[in-house]
Design a protein around this nucleic acid. Structure first.
Length: 812
RNA sequence: GCCCGGGUGGCGAAAUCGGCAGACGCAAAGGACUUAAAAUCCUUUGGUGGGCAACCACCGUGUGGGUUCAAGUCCCACCCCGGGCACCA
C-alpha cells in the first residue's frame, strides 16, 4: 500500500465536522468513575487566541484527555471573562456597543478553541456578561451586605486617569495602573464599596498550609507576603493635649530607645496638632507619595511642636510628621527607635534626633555611637526593670504589663486591605443597591435581581460612570419606602466575576440559585487548576476569599477551591509577555492555517517544559510538522505489513522494548512533572526506531506498536491520532480508549553497556547482562583490553561498581 | 535592599536519586532521488589538537574555591539575567 501524504487541513476538517455534534467531552452527571475536575483560567475575549493561550490550553487539554483514558469522569469546562474595559474602549473608538463587540469576539475565539480541538464541555459554557451569570454576582453581594462583609466608605483610592476609574491595591503595579503601565496612579477621595477580605486574612493565611505540596511554593510565598501578618503590641503614648496616641510595634522590647513619635501625614492627629502651614506640608507629602513611583524616597518630616509621654518610662518625646509613615498600616503612627530600626535611624540622623541603643547582642557590647541600626534580637539594656531580659522575653512581659495597666495590648496587623470593588464604568455588574434620600442605602430585593445593565448606552469615556447618564436606569423607587430614589451607578470590579465562575460550571443553567450545592459536593475541589503566574495574588486570593464566604453562608462545605495549581510560564516575544496590548502576538489561526492545529499544539509543548518562560521564535515549528508527517506516512505505508505473520526477531524485541520504555516515560510524566517536551522527544525516538527497523518487524508487533503510538500521541495531537486510529481499522474515539499499559519485562534491556572509568576518567565500556552482579561487572571491566592499558603496572586502590551505571577503578 | 527562579553547543533544550554532559528538535554542511527545484531519505555536526582510518588525547555546563572514587547536580563566596516584594514599623 503506498503511503499517504500528510494533509493536515483535510484530516483536521474531517474530524472537526464529525466531532461537531458529538457529546465527546461532556462530563457525566452521575458516574461510578472517579471524578477529575481540570480547569484552565478563563480568558478575556480580546478577539483572537495567540500562541501563549495555545500553550496554556494544550497543557490542560493533554491532561484532560489522559485522565479520560485513565478512566476518570472528567469535567473540563471553559468560559469567558467577558466584562471589562477593552469593550468600552472599543465602543468609544468604533461606535460599537460593548455587548456586540464582546459577543463577536467570543464567537471568533470559540471557533479557534474548537479548531484546536480543545476538549471542553461547551454545554457548561459561562459568559460573565450575561444577566444569568452576573445576577449571582449581585446575589453574592447582597449576601455579603447582610453579613457586614460589603460596606461603603469614603476613602483615598487609587485612580487611573486613563481608565477613568478606581483600581484595587492589587491592580497598582510600580505606582502605575496594571493596564496602563506608564500612567501614574493618583489618590482621590471617593465613596466606595469594599468587600471585607480582612475578616478572612487570618484564615487565608493559615489555610495556605492546606495547599502546601499542591501549589507552587512561589505562589504560596507571594500570598503570605501579600497578606503580611505581623504580631506585635499596640500601645498608647499620651499627648500633651491629654489625648492618646496609639502606635503599633513588633519591637516593644526597644521602647526605651524611642526618641520620638512619628505620625503619617494623613493621620487625623496631624491636622489637629499642626498649624495651617504644617497642614499644607502634610498635604504636599500625601500628594507627592501618590505620584512617586517605587524606589527609595528621601525621608522627610517636621516637628509638630507637641510632645507625647512614653507609657513605660514616662519620658516625654517630640511628635513629628514623617512621609515614610503609612496611614494604611498599623495605627498610622510609629514610635521611632533609631538605634534598632534602619528607617528610624535614617530619619533621626537627618533631623538630629537622639539615637539611644537599648539592645545589645547576646555576645557583645551595647554600641555607643552606631553607624547603622542594630536590628537583631538581643539583651535589653538601659530599660529600667526590664534590663537583662532577652528581647523575646521582654516583649511578652512588657505587653502583659500594658494589658494589665490598660495602655496597650497584643495586636496583629495585616498588610492586606479590604477589597475596593467600585468601578465608575459601564461594562460590568451593576452594584444592586438604591440610594434613598430618606432611608439611605437600601439593597435591591433578591427577587428583583438581576439589576440589568441597559444596552443602549452612550460611552464617552469621561470621569463618571456612563450609567449615571441613563435616566431609566438611575431613577428608581426605594424598595423600603417607595419614594423616588437613585440607583447606584458604579459597577463591580471584574475580579468579582472570576472569583466564583468555576462553581457555576458545575451547574451553569441553574435559575434558582448560583448552583446546586450537591453538584459542588461532587466536583469540588478542583483537582487541577492551570494558569499564568501573573494571577498569583489577584485572582487566586479573591477566589479563595469567595470560597470561604460561600462556605460560611452554607452554600458549600469546602474551604479551598483548588487542590493543585500549576502555573505555566509566559510566552515572551520581543522581550515582552505576548499580549494583544503589546502587539507582539503570534495568532493561533495563522499557525493552524499553515501547519495545522496538531502542529501548533505540539510545538507549544515541545519548546520548553511548561513551567518555564519561553522566548517565542518560529524556528523549530517545521521540525514538529515534519515529525507528524513522518508518523502519518509510516503508518499508512505499513498497513499492508500489519496482517503479516508473527515472529520473534531481534527487531521485534527491540521495538517492543522501546515502546514500553516510551509508555513508561510518558505515563510517569503525566503523573508527576508534566515535562511534555521530553514526552514528545521520546515519541520522536520511538518513530526514529521504527524507521530504523522498517521491513524487519512482524505484523503483530507492528500493529501493537502503531496502535500504542497512536494512543500515546492522542493527548497531544488529537486529530492525527484519530485519523491514524481509523487507518489502523479501529473505531471509537482515541480519547476514550484505555491508556497503554506498561510492561516492565518487555521494557527491560537484556544487555547493557557499562562505562568504565579509571581515576574518574572515562576509558572504555564493557557489556554485561542487565542483572549482572557487581563482581561479574568488575571482572569484565578489569579484564577489558583497553582498560588494562591504563592500570598495568599500577596499584589498584579500590574499585567502585554501581550495577547498571558504571565502574570506576582507582589506581595509584 | 530582601525573597524566589534561572545561567549547559550557532539556537530551543535533555541529563527525574551524586554515576557516560549535550537525548530530541532547529539551523548548517555533505550525499541519495530529480532534467532541475521543493518534498523525502541517509550521513556529519561542543571546542582544540593528532591520525589514511574504525579512532585517540586534552579541554568543556556563568566565575573562584571546597566535599567526593566521581559534581551540570551537593556546600561556600561572587557575577549576570528574569520574576515577586519593597519604607508594612
Amino acid at each position: 500500500m503506498p503511503e499517504k501524504p500528510y494533509d493536515h487541513s483535510q484530516i483536521e476538517l474531517k474530524w472537526r465536522q464529525r466531532w461537531e455534534n458529538a457529546t465527546l467531552y461532556q462530563a457525566e452527571e452521575s458516574s461510578s468513575k472517579p471524578k477529575y475536575y481540570v480547569l484552565e483560567m478563563l480568558p478575556y475575549p480580546s478577539g483572537a487566541l495567540h500562541i501563549g493561550h495555545i500553550r496554556n490550553y494544550s497543557i490542560g487539554d493533554a491532561l484532560a484527555r489522559y485522565k479520560w483514558m485513565r478512566g476518570y469522569n472528567v469535567l473540563h469546562p471553559m468560559g469567558w471573562d467577558a466584562f471589562g474595559l477593552p469593550a468600552e474602549n472599543a465602543a468609544i473608538k468604533n461606535q460599537r456597543p460593548p455587548r456586540e463587540w464582546t459577543l463577536e469576539n467570543v464567537a471568533a475565539m470559540k471557533r479557534t478553541y474548537q479548531r484546536f480541538a480543545f476538549s471542553y464541555d461547551w454545554e457548561r459554557e459561562v459568559s460573565t456578561c450575561e444577566p444569568e451569570y452576573y445576577r449571582w454576582n449581585q446575589w453574592f453581594f447582597l449576601k455579603m451586605l447582610e453579613r457586614g462583609l460589603a460596606y461603603r466608605k469614603k476613602a483615598l483610592v487609587n485612580w487611573c486617569s486613563e481608565c477613568a476609574t478606581v483600581l484595587a491595591n492589587e491592580q497598582v503595579v510600580d505606582g502605575c495602573c496594571w493596564r496602563h503601565e506608564t500612567t501614574p496612579v493618583e489618590q482621590r477621595a471617593l465613596e466606595q464599596w469594599f468587600l471585607k477580605i480582612t475578616d478572612y486574612a487570618d484564615e487565608l493565611l493559615r489555610d495556605l498550609a492546606m495547599l502546601e505540596g499542591g501549589w507552587p511554593e512561589r505562589v504560596l510565598t507571594m500570598q503570605r507576603n501579600w497578606i503580611g501578618r505581623s504580631e506585635g503590641t499596640e500601645t498608647a503614648f499620651t499627648l500633651d493635649t491629654g489625648a492618646p496616641l496609639r502606635v503599633f510595634t513588633t519591637r516593644v522590647d526597644t521602647i526605651y530607645g524611642a526618641t520620638c513619635v512619628i505620625l503619617a501625614p494623613e493621620h487625623p492627629l496631624t491636622a489637629a496638632l499642626v498649624d495651617a502651614e504644617g497642614q499644607a506640608r502634610a498635604k504636599a507629602m500625601v500628594d507627592a507619595r501618590a505620584s512617586q513611583g517605587p524606589g527609595d524616597v528621601e525621608k522627610e518630616g517636621f516637628f509638630t511642636g507637641h510632645y507625647a509621654v512614653n507609657p513605660y518610662n514616662r519620658e516625654s518625646v517630640p511628635v513629628w510628621v514623617g512621609n515614610f509613615v503609612l496611614m494604611g498600616y498599623g495605627t498610622g503612627a510609629i514610635m521611632a527607635v533609631p538605634a534598632h530600626d534602619q528607617r528610624d535611624f535614617e530619619f533621626c540622623s537627618k533631623y538630629g534626633i537622639p539615637i539611644r541603643p537599648v539592645i545589645r547582642p547576646v555576645e557583645g557590647e551595647l554600641p555607643s555611637a552606631p553607624t547603622e541600626a542594630f536590628l537583631d534580637d538581643g539583651i535589653v539594656e538601659n530599660s529600667g526593670e526590664w534590663s537583662g531580659l532577652s528581647s523575646s522575653h521582654a516583649r511578652q512581659r512588657m505587653t502583659a504589663k500594658a494589658e494589665a495597666e490598660g495602655f496597650g495590648k497584643d495586636a496583629v496587623t495585616f498588610r492586606i486591605k479590604d477589597w475596593g470593588i467600585s468601578r465608575q464604568r459601564y461594562w460590568g455588574t451593576p452594584i444592586p443597591v438604591i440610594h434613598c434620600p430618606a432611608c439611605g442605602v437600601v439593597p435591591v430585593p433578591e427577587n428583583e435581581l438581576p439589576v440589568r445593565l441597559p444596552l443602549d448606552v452612550k460611552i464617552t469615556g469621561t470621569g463618571r460612570s456612563p450609567l449615571a447618564d441613563v435616566p431609566e436606569f438611575v431613577n428608581a423607587r426605594c424598595p423600603a419606602c417607595g419614594c423616588a430614589a437613585r440607583r447606584e451607578t458604579d459597577t463591580m470590579d471584574t475580579f468579582v466575576d472570576s472569583s466564583w465562575y468555576f462553581y457555576r460550571y458545575c451547574d451553569s443553567r441553574n435559575h434558582q440559585g448560583p448552583f446546586d450545592p450537591g453538584k459542588i459536593g461532587y466536583w469540588f475541589p478542583i483537582d487541577q487548576y492551570i494558569g499564568g503566574v501573573e494571577h498569583a495574588i489577584l485572582h487566586l486570593i479573591y477566589s479563595r476569599f469567595f470560597t470561604k464566604v460561600m462556605r460560611d453562608i452554607g452554600l458549600i462545605t469546602n474551604s479551598e477551591p483548588t487542590r493543585r495549581l500549576f502555573t505555566q510560564g509566559m510566552v515572551i516575544r520581543n522581550g515582552r509577555k505576548m499580549s494583544k496590548n503589546l502587539g507582539n502576538v503570534v495568532a493561533a489561526e495563522e499557525v493552524a492555517d499553515k501547519y495545522g492545529a496538531d502542529t501548533g499544539r505540539l510545538f507549544a509543548l515541545f519548546a520548553a517544559p511548561p513551567e518555564k518562560d519561553v522566548d517565542w521564535i518560529d524556528a523549530g515549528v517545521d521540525g514538529i510538522y515534519r515529525f507528524l508527517g513522518r508518523v502519518y506516512r509510516f503508518v499508512t505505508r505499513s498497513l499492508e505489513q500489519i496482517p503479516g505473520p508473527p515472529g520473534a526477531g531481534a527487531a521485534d524485541r527491540r521495538i517492543l522494548r522501546k515502546l514500553h520504555q516510551t509508555i513508561h516515560k510518558i505515563t510517569d510524566d503525566f503523573e508527576t512533572r508534566w515535562h511534555f517536551n521530553t514526552c514528545i522527544a521520546s515519541l520522536m525516538e520511538l518513530v526514529n526506531d521504527l524507521h530504523a527497523h522498517e521491513g524487519k518487524l512482524s505484523g503483530p508487533v507492528l500493529r501493537t506498536t502503531l496502535e500504542n503510538l497512536t494512543l500515546l500521541l492522542g493527548p497531544f495531537a488529537p486529530y492525527l491520532a484519530e485519523e491514524m486510529w481509523e487507518e489502523l481499522g479501529r473505531t471509537g474515539p482515541v480519547c476514550r480508549q484505555p491508556w497503554p499499559v506498561y510492561d516492565p519485562d518487555l521494557a527491560k534491556e537484556d544487555e547493557i553497556e557499562i562505562p568504565v572509568q579509571v581515576n574518574g576518567k572515562l576509558r572504555g565500556r564493557v557489556t554485561a547482562p542487565v542483572d549482572a552482579l557487581p563482581d561479574d561487572i568488575e571482572r569484565r571491566a578489569l579484564g577489558d583490553d583497553k582498560i588494562k592499558q591504563f592500570i598495568v603496572g599500577k596499584q589498584i586502590v579500590k574499585v567502585i561498581t554501581v550495577p547498571g551505571k558504571l565502574v570506576n577503578i582507582v589506581v595509584k
